[in-house]
Write a protein that binds this DNA or RNA. Structure first.
Lengths: 367, 367
DNA sequence: TGCGGGAACCGTAACGGTTCAGTAGGTCTG
DNA sequence: CAGACCTACTGAACCGTTACGGTTCCCGCA
């Protein structure tokens, strides 16, 4: 593109000062501390600036000196576009954006390809702090963030390191859901979950793999599920858990199919996200089964589409989570010493996709 | 939060160099030009860095020196959270994010409150370029962006200034839609449009206000509509146009209500966005009218929800638009002198919300 | 033995600001 | 009329890095 007023080199504060015959300090003050110079001189500075096409103090140079960037970095180990594709992520981002806006900060989305070890993007992010959203605990990008000498807030992660954190009680939330299903009479269930580790794995996840999962949220939910069902004597080793790397409805569908093939006896499919559940729902119906008469399906998150179709799920306040993360990061009352923690409330949503399992006779011969 | 290894002051490249007894250049090279020093020394540098808790070259300082920020700024004159609430904006962002990702750049969302004159956020954005999305042509933030000596791409804006631009042919697109309605037999129509200027105005927009609109997209669409209907002898002065400041379904609903009250004779409501159209659709149905038997409703954008309900609309490739904007900005082949322009294709989607108007008799006494 | 050339490292000057401790000159106070 | 105090401005240090143009040293080769 072409610029209208362009001399060889763009004007700087120093060149402006020279032109005016004043010191750089004075020009700087004209922008930052109007009370430090006479109104006339200030006007003269600003006018000359306009004439020379000086756009005001360079943000980067200022940032270097003041040690403030006026921006918050968001790290989510996913393709950047995922942030806009997943409704829960979008909600989180909206909340985070609100908090940033309130504090007059920009929001920098940092590209961090999950299959890539390159952390240069983290190193080159000029930000005042990081929000880390849903990354595996062994992620190199996360490690790189931790090295940076700026405050950091982490979401949906265990509090293993001494870092401020925002999250929900994943375990308690999904236990409520599990007990709901147990009350309805479900004993033979199957689970569809999101990726458990950085390496792609699509298929059954052994109990060992489950407990070693690097994604805290998934691990917590699976553990809680196993506990809830252990309470009524269900052997978790026998419960099929299907993992999917990509978080899409297609994944949910194929996982549900795999689950039903693996064990046709299951009466309920518990999905660890609504997206997966919506996919499972379509697949199950495509196969001609009715929900919830023939099979029960549940999700997690409480996204709009889930509500629309009446999915039985757990609603978590994604927007609030984003906002809380931003607030925590930008709050001046920071650095109280101990890491702070915000736990948000969740809510069991009993929709129309969960019902009592029919007896085997009913299933085969009708009610 | 607490940092594990924290001496009084964080280590810098210089302190590292001093500790090692080498020059700053060498330390810098250890990070940026591994081929410039022996592998042994490099290892020693990196080891010492780890020991001292030096997180690598400061991004801001580096950015000042190299004149690169590794980020693209996005200006959209809306509350930041709007970017995540409006599906068309989300699609655009997704595309833009894809382009940024490909080029290993971050994406900085710049807060720019539309009702606020404060452009400091633009001045303090450390970015290599700007993408401007859907802002009024008299917006001070836009002016501030133009002052910054970095490349800029503008979306959905006339090519008044010599700036790279991405967009669609709004006029042609909506004319197709208009002709479709005309063929169906509509002569008495009403229009619901998005905000036309920076100052809030909810209600009828006079032809004069329409032609003076500061939002190019809206102006272009309204102008094209007036031309299309003028061709068949409809006096645009008589066509009610209702403007809404907030871009929500609620706005669409109330605008539709206002429109029908203003002129109960209209047989079609043309909305300049799907969001507005979806709101209008609910409102019309709430009032007990059937679509399209009693009234026709059309939108613009082609968002998912529109497709879901079978809205007659114009589909525009929002994701592609974002991607094209990003590509244009980051393309090295830039600065060819003349401003570049990318015009994307649109497509008329004939859904189920547009039909032939019934005669007045039919309307009152049934078919 | 002399010399060209590459590998490894260094010194200095930016990059474009902000900050803080002055200082010159004028006004106010007792 | 001395001293305190204020207003308006200045000089120099500093923020942490990279770019540029060396210098030194050693090796191979004629």
């Amino acid at each position: 593109m072409v610029r209208s007023t362009n001399s060889r080199r763009p004007a700087t504060l120093a060149s402006l000062a020279a032109e005016l015959g004043v010191s750089r300090t004075t020009v700087s003050n004209a922008y930052n501390r109007p009370d430090q110079l006479s109104p006339e001189l200030r006007k003269r500075v600003l006018d000359t600036a306009r004439r020379l096409g000086y756009p005001g103090p360079d943000p980067v140079a200022r940032s270097l000196r003041t040690r403030k960037a006026g921006a918050v970095g968001l790290l989510l180990t996913e393709n950047l576009s995922y942030a806009f594709r997943d409704p829960a992520a979008v909600g989180f981002l909206e909340g985070l954006a609100l908090a940033c806006e309130d504090a007059d900060h920009g929001l920098l989305l940092i590209p961090a390809n999950p299959e890539h070890e390159d952390v240069a993007s983290v190193h080159s992010a000029g930000v005042d702090g990081f929000v880390v959203y849903s990354v595996p605990d062994d992620d190199p990008h996360l490690a790189a963030v931790m090295e940076r000498p700026v405050p950091t807030v982490i979401c949906d992660q265990p509090s293993l390191s001494d870092i401020d954190r925002v999250g929900i009680d994943d375990g308690a939330a999904i236990k409520d859901l599990a007990r709901h299903l147990i009350e309805l009479g479900h004993r033979k269930i199957g689970v569809v979950c999101m990726r458990l580790a950085r390496l792609r794995n699509d298929g059954p996840a052994s109990p060992e793999r489950q407990s070693r999962a690097n994604f805290h949220v998934q691990r917590a939910r699976l553990t809680a599920l196993s506990e809830a069902f252990a309470e009524i004597g269900v052997d978790w080793e026998q419960v099929p858990v299907i993992e999917r790397f990509d978080h899409t409805t297609e994944s949910g569908g194929s996982a549900a199919a795999q689950l039903m093939e693996l064990d046709p006896e299951i009466t309920a499919i518990i999905c660890t996200s609504d997206i997966l559940a919506l996919g499972a729902l379509s697949e199950v119906r495509r196969q001609g089964r009715r929900v919830p008469q023939d099979i029960t399906i549940t999700g997690f998150d409480g996204i709009d589409d889930a509500e629309r179709v009446g999915l039985t799920t757990v609603r978590q306040p994604v927007l609030e989570k984003g906002r809380a993360a931003g607030r925590l990061l930008l709050d001046a009352a920071e650095s109280s010493g101990k890491p702070r923690e915000v736990l948000l409330e969740t809510q069991l949503v009993t929709g129309s996709t969960a019902g009592s399992p029919r007896s085997v006779e009913e299933r085969w011969f009708g009610p």
